[in-house]
Amino acid sequence: MSAVTTQDLTKDFLTGFWRPVPKRALDCLTLEVPTGGVFGLLGPNGAGKSTTLKLLMGLLWPTRGTARILGLPPGDTAARQRLGFLPENPTFYDHLTAEELLSYFAGLFGYRGEARRRRVEYVLDLVGLAADRRRPLRQYSKGMVQRVGLAQALVNDPELVVLDEPMSGLDPIGRRDVRAMIAALGAEGRTVLFSSHILTDAEELCERVAIIARGRLVAEGRVADLASRHVTGWRLTVSGGDDEVLARVVPGGTVERLADGRAVVNLHGETRPEPVIAALAGAGLRLESVIPRRESLEDVFVRALNGDAGDDAAARAGRGEVAAR
């Protein structure tokens, strides 16, 4: 069973006070997040990621379409019992301590007495806030607040963890810690669904991603599949030999010199590296590294967005709309 499924999920927001006009934030999103593992929902700012997550959480009502979360409709109390949610840039109550906040939320999940105390202690430890548990939240740094946010999402030992931009606004150390926590959650067999506009995070963490732009799904699949379909070449680093030798040995590639005297040979397109490596060895050059140049998620992303933009422009032209508004 999938952790999350959506079918034609659509959301219009009314904008304008006097004469509200609907503005489409999410357009017919059909998506499936399998149980277990880390799933990334990617897209530029304003693409509809937060809208999607809030629809799943029952904070917004869909204009059209349906969503199921853990097999139940969004907002169902039984589903909420089994999931955790970290909103974007959370802030909590000024006058509570981390311990009090988590204890409050744990109570809402039905933890009582000793079990409640132990659970709070456990998640505080998990996010590394055990030492600061008795300080009021208003004294916390941004990174610490984000950890509290993670802790409150995990306080009920959820099957499904939904994180909205969990890494945004954090310093490099903070990002690394959060990344490690997400990876650990995935490794424990929970389903993690997170949104991000930062692709390197997703590339490292996710098995699968969905890319949305302007409210529409533009690509979806395993990260390996999405990227490796487009191997663009190889990069060989060698030392020794001069440009003349290299040019002779590597007819199909380009050569560049590094500052330390080593050379980088770039092979493009369908050129296979094996014959080149054999030739390099034959010419007495020392091979230092061979790296396949795969298309990164960023390339996929940019291509997807451009393609979508092209479609969009074409669609507009087809409907005869004036593009310059």
Binding site: L59, T77, R80, Q81, L83, F85, T91, L108, G149, A153
Partner: peptide
Amino acid sequence: DRRSIFSLLTKPLP
């Protein structure tokens, strides 16, 4: 304002 409502209302709290 503080967006704590997002955390709170996604708990099993009608």
